[in-house]
Nucleic acid binder design. Sequence first.
DNA 1: ACTCACTGGGTACACCGTACCCAATTACGA
DNA 2: TCGTAATTGGGTACGGTGTACCCAGTGAGT
Lengths: 255, 255
Amino acid sequence: MTTTEHSGSGDISRSLELLWGTGERPSRGPKPGLTLERIVTAAIAVADAEGLAAVSMRRLSAELGTGTMSLYRYVPGKAELLDLMLDQVQSFDPDAHAVDLGWRETLEMVARGAWQLYERHPWLLQVDQARPLLGPNAMAGLEFALRGLDGLGLTDRERIHVIVTVDGFATGVARTHLNSVMAEKRTGVSDAEFWKAHAPVVEKAFAGGRFPMQAALGEDAFTGRGEDVFEFGLGSLLDGIGAFIAARARDTAEK
Amino acid sequence: MTTTEHSGSGDISRSLELLWGTGERPSRGPKPGLTLERIVTAAIAVADAEGLAAVSMRRLSAELGTGTMSLYRYVPGKAELLDLMLDQVQSFDPDAHAVDLGWRETLEMVARGAWQLYERHPWLLQVDQARPLLGPNAMAGLEFALRGLDGLGLTDRERIHVIVTVDGFATGVARTHLNSVMAEKRTGVSDAEFWKAHAPVVEKAFAGGRFPMQAALGEDAFTGRGEDVFEFGLGSLLDGIGAFIAARARDTAEK
DNA sequence: ACTCACTGGGTACACCGTACCCAATTACGA
DNA sequence: TCGTAATTGGGTACGGTGTACCCAGTGAGT
């Protein structure tokens, strides 16, 4: 049993200070035996290996060999820790930003980047990303996307719309896909077994005649891989966005 | 602090029995003073009003005026309760299914239906929907979508891909939108205040010259409403899917 | 040497899901 | 009619959670 942890519940400016590392060491008192980074890294490692539910303050302190309450000397609370985990995990190869790509390649990278990120850290889907604090890594990603959409005649707001749309799509499909993968890992019940359990109830429902479309569906309809759905949807979405961009280009050409 | 609750963690066939209501009352023993439906309804009401985090067995029992452990006479555990909440909340006007719509209208209804569902019950985004148990309402929704995509020359798997894509898109964008709305409600910090807190740190980052695109962004770039992003993205996505369907139609015509 | 900001961390509290009991209730078999 | 078996109601208790509150120990500044 787990719950989507709320990030950003704590003191915002405190979290930002931690994110951007503006804290100076005070001159008095003993030197800290821990670092923020070690705590965040340990938390991510635990989340990757055992899921977000396994990340508790007691568990982390055990992992780091300290007292539980010592962690609160570095992080105001668990919510802020999640903020920090979010930003750290979003760091990616800065070389990828160097190249100037076309809009389609850029958006494909945005979508595939999000997909791979979720694949690597499925627990991200469990974190309430409502208001991800603007960390350095998040800003770098946005900058990359904006540059790829530059010079197409789109307004600022339209560029943001496009980016949020592509990211939302990737997130939504990744959620469906990865939740299923995680469910299997967690419960030990494979997809096949899961659907097998449904068989009796589904057959009874089909017999009622209320679901002719589903009854007529072939066996293989549901066996598609999540990646295929993602690629199909991404292609369609970008085709549609391409049409929008082309229309914009025609508008500006007329003027 | 909250966590995405895992549905489907419990005994699957037990949950299915509850979903499809195949349980007969045993002849002996006292009559139950509660019903499954009352429990599920109360749980949904609490989740709607105060979020998923407020839904605890103790809280529900208080709401219903019973002992906490009595709930376990009706529901195997909290995971199964979530399964039931999921299906109950997905019920919609059966009349909407009566009409036969074109593929675009159908997919628009699927997407808008999902969007409105999340708007009404934002906590749905917190529930792990990896493997939603096939309840009667979920099946009705899928049936509706499949019918709208009938006769277009798509394979079974392609129709499923289209539906998952559209649903994933709606879910992803709704997540971004509603998490922001919920964050405001929960923390009392408005979007404006939230971004204001970022100002000093963002300005310092801009001064570094690493983010020229974001620095050049107009004030209004981020003030767009979530609904606008949704409508923009939905339009583009359906345009793209339309192109795919048209290409398929040409294929079959050639044969 | 004294002071005092600082770090480390133990204890305690309020909450959670739920395993395990036992008492009260009800209908069937004798 | 009277056990008796099945079923419901629910109290208690356990192991988990985040974290408020303290106090002891550290080490640089005066």
